[in-house]
């Protein structure tokens, strides 16, 4: 039984690990894949260990907001790469 997110986590992790082995500048290209990996993993942890429905819902909303905020601060990486 394969869910979509189960497949996405594995494929994205393979991409990220391969790009780390090739070059660190390729890793910057894969940062959007990294945020998908982090958000799906933390969502799975919240689904597994928290059994109160209201707290789970609030944490999932906060997780999504923080994922958007982290992806907003990725542009600092592009500034660093551009200036070096």
């Amino acid at each position: 039984m394969i869910t979509f997110q189960w497949l996405i986590v594995r494929v994205v992790a393979l991409f990220i690990s391969l790009t780390i082995l090739i070059d660190i500048e390729m890793f910057v290209v894969m940062l959007s894949f990294l945020i998908i990996h982090i958000s799906i993993g933390l969502k799975a942890i919240i689904h597994d260990y928290i059994h109160f429905q209201k707290i789970k819902l609030m944490l999932l909303i906060l997780l999504r907001v923080s994922a958007i905020e982290i992806s907003r601060s990725f542009r600092t990486f592009y500034i660093i790469i551009k200036n070096t």
């Binding site: 982090i38 982290i70 601060s73 600092t76």
Partner: peptide
């Protein structure tokens, strides 16, 4: 595996916050 994943996410976000402070 799970604990190290959460720790890596924590390190990554603190790294981003430090870079935003410096820049």
């Amino acid at each position: 595996h799970r604990i190290s994943g959460v720790g890596l996410a924590f390190f990554f976000t603190t790294f981003l916050i430090f870079i935003r402070i410096i820049l």
